[in-house]
């Protein structure tokens, strides 16, 4: 049990900070397994909050390895995804459950 306590103590050393204020709000919508808009511009080198609205009745997983995001969005719900700070560039994302059609990219500039 001593080991457990030591490990828990280590976890508590993690830095906790309040939510950064002033993050910009941007919205993506999933409809018929497609993203609208399919490309979205965000400011570079900043934390950004994306709102992803799933208008389909089926669940979707918003995923981007490049942006290190992985989030399940059940049908007819919306989710908030925090990304960045991103260096300027193009960051593709997919809806993992319908990868053929659900594709898009975040452009950081």
């Amino acid at each position: 049990m001593k080991n457990l306590a030591a490990a828990a103590g280590l976890a508590a050393v993690l830095v906790f900070a309040p939510l950064s204020a002033g993050a910009q709000d941007l919205t993506l919508t999933i409809k018929d397994h497609k993203f609208t808009p399919s490309e979205i511009k965000v400011p570079a080198n900043k934390r950004v909050k994306l709102t992803v609205v799933n208008d389909d009745i089926t669940p979707e997983e918003f995923e981007s390895k490049q942006m290190k995001v992985e989030k399940v969005i059940p049908g007819k719900t919306k989710a908030v995804v925090r990304i960045g700070p991103l260096k300027p560039g193009r960051y593709p994302f997919v809806g993992e459950f319908h990868e053929d059609s659900a594709k898009g990219a975040v452009i950081a500039e």
Binding site: F16, L19, R47, K68, G84
Partner: peptide, 20 residues
């Protein structure tokens, strides 16, 4: 990373390298 995505941790988010 999940804590970072949740906004619980907001520091040290800089990418160190890219081996994609």
């Amino acid at each position: 990373q999940f804590l970072y995505n949740a906004g619980t941790v907001n520091v040290l988010g800089t990418t160190v390298w890219n081996t994609s």
